[in-house]
Amino acid sequence: MLSDTERRELEDALKHYPDKRSGTIDVLLLVQRRRGWISDESILDIAQFLEMTSEDVDSVATFYNLIFRKPVGRHVAFLCDSISCWIMGYEQVREQLKKQYDIDLGQTTRDGRLTVLPIACLGQCERAPAMMIDQNVYGEVTPDKVETIMEKYK
């Protein structure tokens, strides 16, 4: 069930739209921010709130790269694997993360600290390869910088 705080936050997000369902993405992102990911229960809560079917909400939730339908770690590293970052060696960064944390794309560390996901071009092509951790973007990432960057994300 949605808490009162969640409900107030979601209602606020709907005020810029003429109907409830238009707020689906905003609502999914807000619920995810509080709960970490979008569980089946969250889908049902949101469907009830937006007066939509749960299938309808899920068809939107499963469409987007930034809506997590599975649990993720406390931090999520989004590794850009699009062309400019591929040319400039994103695979070495991926290898470094694999070596350091024993996880590849789509996996979470056993202690729940970090999930690594691939992401479509982050628009940082002039300083490739790029990586985004939670909401922070890093450019010109090299394998030897990974450990220092990750210190902020415990």
Partner: peptide
Amino acid sequence: AGRYICGEETALINALEGKR
């Protein structure tokens, strides 16, 4: 919430309406 096809203007409109 991140999906390339949303850059296509009619897909973008569906996205803004909260549809797939």
